[in-house]
């Protein structure tokens, strides 16, 4: 492969793997919000557990999930700086259960697929 081809290949890999991980972000986020967390603590916690989440992606996602009534939010203003905390609603907990099951099924089948040959 030429160098430019290799660059293109690398770029393509970066895009595809980003796409792959993007689908798992909702489940990752929901899984960490059984207890209230604010955006940045969520970024750090996910990071510490090996899931990279850009704040620029995560913050808008939290809002979308709130609009879908999977999350509840409240501003905590008593501290030195205001923070917006998010936590699962009942709907959110139910959704997390369903998506977790879905994830188990997908991974089971994916492992099967990748083992072939």
């Amino acid at each position: 492969m030429k160098e430019s081809d290799q660059d293109a290949f690398q770029k393509n890999f970066a895009n595809l793997s980003l796409e792959l991980r993007r689908g798992t972000l909702v489940l990752s986020v929901l899984s960490q919000l059984r207890k209230p967390q604010y955006g940045y603590s969520l970024v750090e916690e996910l990071g510490a557990k090996g899931i990279q989440a850009e704040p620029g992606t995560l913050y808008p996602l939290l809002r979308r999930l709130e609009a879908q009534q999977l999350l509840d939010s409240m501003w905590e203003t008593s501290g030195s700086k205001p923070r917006k905390y998010y936590v699962l609603t009942d709907n959110g907990r139910h959704m997390l259960d369903l998506l977790s099951q879905e994830w188990q099924t997908i991974t089971k089948h994916m492992i099967g697929l990748l083992k072939e040959e």
Partner: peptide, 17 residues
């Protein structure tokens, strides 16, 4: 309608980072 909330959120995020 979203501006103020997002603005506060982003300020607090950037501060922290």
């Amino acid at each position: 309608a979203q501006r103020q909330d997002v603005s506060m959120e982003l300020h607090s995020l950037i501060d922290e980072m």
